[in-house]
Write a protein that binds this DNA or RNA. Structure first.
Length: 208
DNA sequence: CGTTGGATTGGCT
DNA sequence: GCCAATCCAACGC
């Protein structure tokens, strides 16, 4: 398994090409204090220009700014009042696109992940986009981080998985753009998230 | 300026 | 399976 970093050219392509090729790669994080935490990517989703489900579909704002920036950087955003999400920016600057990291298989720093997640089972540490951010301590401070040259978070080449074991389907939790089968995962991998593909279940709108 | 709902999670019925 | 938590971007007026 290679610990060399993925080059900028890897990311400077459409997200739908990058997403399946990110499977088997390793997301690495150096926490304050120096502890290294690493996990193998087992599930990812692509968000492309002109994609109504993408944050980059509308104009550039403070929130989605990283999506419009150079490839190989991190786009981090906050949602549902609780959770951070980590994306890898793809395509050249000016073309908003990114790959949402949805699940990792923990490799290193598992004790630290358990402490942050307050969960013991290894299968529950990084199986979900909000969970993996919590496990790796990724929040807004990591937005715009350079995965190619940065020291706080980066991507190692790891072992690309053969296309024969890559499964694809519609994305999780999106109400529009469900015609696009842009979610990719490693078939039968126990660390893939349990999120249901398709639109989120309607919540009650009742108020106190 | 008020309302809506989200690239989710975890706890409870 | 259902739904509250909890915040803020986007959008309507």
């Amino acid at each position: 398994m290679s610990s060399r970093r993925l080059p900028r050219s890897f990311f400077s392509r459409p997200a739908v090409e990058v997403a399946p090729e990110l499977l088997g790669r390793v997301l690495a994080r150096r926490l304050n204090g120096g502890t290294i935490v690493r996990g193998r990517i087992v599930e990812a989703e692509a968000y492309e220009p002109g994609d109504p489900a993408s944050h980059g579909f509308r104009r550039r704002t403070r929130r989605n700014d990283a999506m419009f920036g150079p490839p190989g950087h991190l786009y981090v955003y906050f949602t549902y009042g609780n959770h951070w999400m980590a994306n890898v920016v793809t395509r050249p600057s000016g073309e908003p696109s990114a790959v949402l990291l949805r699940a990792l298989r923990p490799l290193e720093g598992i004790h630290e992940m358990r402490r942050r997640r307050r969960r013991q089972r290894v299968e529950e540490l990084c199986a979900g986009p909000g969970r993996l951010c919590q496990a790796l301590g990724i929040d807004l401070a990591a937005n715009h981080e350079d995965l190619v040259r940065g020291r706080a978070v980066w991507l190692e080449a790891g072992d690309a998985v053969p296309a024969s074991v890559v499964e694809r389907g519609i994305r999780v939790g999106v109400s529009v753009g469900a015609d696009r089968a842009w979610r990719f995962w490693i078939r039968d991998d126990p660390y893939v998230s349990k999120g249901r593909p398709g639109p989120p279940t309607r919540r009650s709108r009742s108020r106190p």
